[in-house]
Design a protein around this nucleic acid. Structure first.
Lengths: 216, 216, 216, 216
DNA sequence: TATGAATGAGAATTCATTCAT
DNA sequence: TATGAATGAATTCTCATTCAT
């Protein structure tokens, strides 16, 4: 089945792609706002301005739609991570940059946090069923390993740091604060998203991470 | 509404309390497993062995039941935290103990993580409506502040550490790893809950936090 | 869980039973008229005057409802067959009576024919899944075997007749005519259900069956 | 609307015919397997390897497609019946041959049975609307009448046999057994389609019919 | 002739909640 | 206090059919 690429057909294909992407974007917003369980296919249709039936036409069912959204979200953050070029910076700067990037990415893409939560609530079965999971592995791990190695060699970093552990820690410092922002704000009685609070958090995280990696 | 405390009545009241607690426990498990949106009142009734109607009798509706579960979960962790008695230990030990406690509590009470996620997905409206939120504030914050102060005074800790930031960071290091255990395991292709992986994580977290607080 | 049989409870139980039976009757009519595939749960609810949700409450889903209807239909015809008491009649009369009974039963219970058709269209999976299939075996087979034996002994019947084959043949003669009444009427251009046509058919069938069993 | 028969056009027409036949065959299989109500236009398209839209182009809608399938099925069996040439055989052989033909035709064309069931479930409205119904009348009726007449004249057959009644009976004996094969097998607990069971059934039917027609 | 994209009406099923006792 | 029966409003998913090219 070779693709017919007459203009008319191409346009139709592009329409199909566009529809799929429109649906994906609408679904991402809906899932981010309500979680997998609370998301409504009807609302996704409304958000996308397309027919509900079309969602099933392209994505089979709600579960697979979620899977597609999740994969796209991972692909997106991985793409951004890829462009960080940590190896162009001195080790300490590279680590600081990673902390900042993570924080900013989560801030600007709050949907990523809720999607991740939903995925884990469902025990990541959407990833287990995805043939493309491995591609979702962060390219940062290798880069970060190299950064740590350089830092160790030039004497600025302590040795024996596992890049995966560090990566998880950097993510966790931002993630917990932002994902649980509402409960934390309620309990502490202050707005954790106020500009000042945000910049204080970023400083703190940088200090924690650098305080750890830098040889004392 | 003074309580009638004739023996017969007392017994009935005790029964009522028991039923309420049974329902709460069943609801906690259900909410933990499926989130607020995915939880089913029918299943809660089944789990509890009690009639569905009774759930409404005691808790009005699903939302308020969730609120009750959430408050109870907070009360429970706060109670445990209260018993940590960090002030009986030297500052560094106290911090290490807090890291360990947090990790172990999350490990043993995975429902706490999903409840928190659900609460935040719903923008903590269940807490905002709770008149008892403030009581949910961790007693640890004050204790931890005192520990940090002592450490600073005896010269072992760096100064200027905000106990709330530190508390959030300690929680975040455990939380992200455990809450996202499924996606992380899938992506990294290894079981993050294996005993060895768990102990490595705990060591890493202690090093990160102590590496930060200890004056270098 | 012993049954509480206070009057109030008994009545409630009777209500439950009554509702279930009302649903079954409505479902039988609907399935008979439209087949399993064409039947609409909404219409069954309407026909029964009960809430659609209740159908699911009692019967799980449409498939199981069909299974229940099918089993009931079988139980009913078996019950009637049981009351035929063929052994009280001389062999030839007994066979004639069976032919007449079968014809009349199908005439008065056209739903039985369509239910059977639906069941077979679905390859009898509803029976395979029924733990009570064996009870649906016709008591007539044994009775008919005895009738044939008696006839053979008194010299009026030919020997070597398999009661199952005969039973199937008797049924088939009525079944085909009645079940395919519409196509046959259309093709032959005459009304097969007119009184005269009906009595002619019955005579013919009796002659065929008796012509076969009677020793010539 | 005279047909344009330039070579190029002829070829296109042949293509069109081929497509129509492909669709008809696919539809026949689908209707046979699932009945009219359970058949899916999507699946018919898949089975035929042709576009769904084409089905509507050629056959208007699902109903008319079913009608076309039904008419074709009738035309086919009538064609085969026409080739039986019963008048070339002695009366008793002719009748035996008809019994065997009917049995074998149903065995080899199980779709005919389910199509007939579907048609009757819908009260043969597809035939009533067909202008060609009368052509579907079996040529056998006349032939069979002649056979019966010859048999009566040569003294081997009883008199007064209505060929339509006999035709229906012969069909019914095979039809019931094969159409209800699944329920019967389930209830009797044995496989009615096993080779031995099949040949026993054929013997039995021949005996029944010949036992009836032959003058005793 | 042939096709992929799109749709509205409907169908099965689910769910929180209330009734009646 | 406790419970089985009942319900209305969704909710996911399906299906025949049409559009546009």
């Amino acid at each position: 089945m070779t693709r017919d690429t007459t203009p008319a057909n191409e346009e139709r294909l592009r329409d199909a792609d566009r529809s799929q992407n429109t649906i994906l974007a609408a679904a991402r917003d809906e899932f981010a706002e309500y979680g997998l369980g609370g998301a409504r296919v009807d609302r996704i249709a409304e958000r996308s301005g397309l027919n509900k039936r079309l969602i099933y036409y392209y994505f089979e069912d709600k579960e697979r739609l979620f899977q597609a959204v999740l994969e796209q979200a991972y692909r997106h953050i991985r793409e951004e991570e890829r462009q960080l070029n940590l190896l162009d910076l001195p080790p300490a700067d590279a680590v600081r940059r990673l902390v900042e990037f993570t924080w900013n990415y989560y801030l600007e893409h709050p949907e990523f946090l809720t999607l991740l939560n939903s995925a884990n609530l469902h025990r990541a079965r959407h990833l287990d069923e995805s043939p493309r999971v491995r591609e979702l592995n962060s390219p940062l791990i290798a880069m970060l390993g190299e950064v740590l190695e350089r830092g160790r060699k030039d004497g600025s970093f302590r040795g024996g740091i596992d890049p995966i552990q560090l990566y998880v820690s950097i993510a966790g410092l931002s993630y917990f604060y932002l994902s649980n922002n509402f409960t934390l704000s309620a309990i502490f009685g202050r707005d954790l998203m106020a500009p000042k609070a945000r910049s204080e958090r970023l400083s703190h995280m940088s200090e924690v991470i650098l305080g750890y990696v830098l040889r004392s």
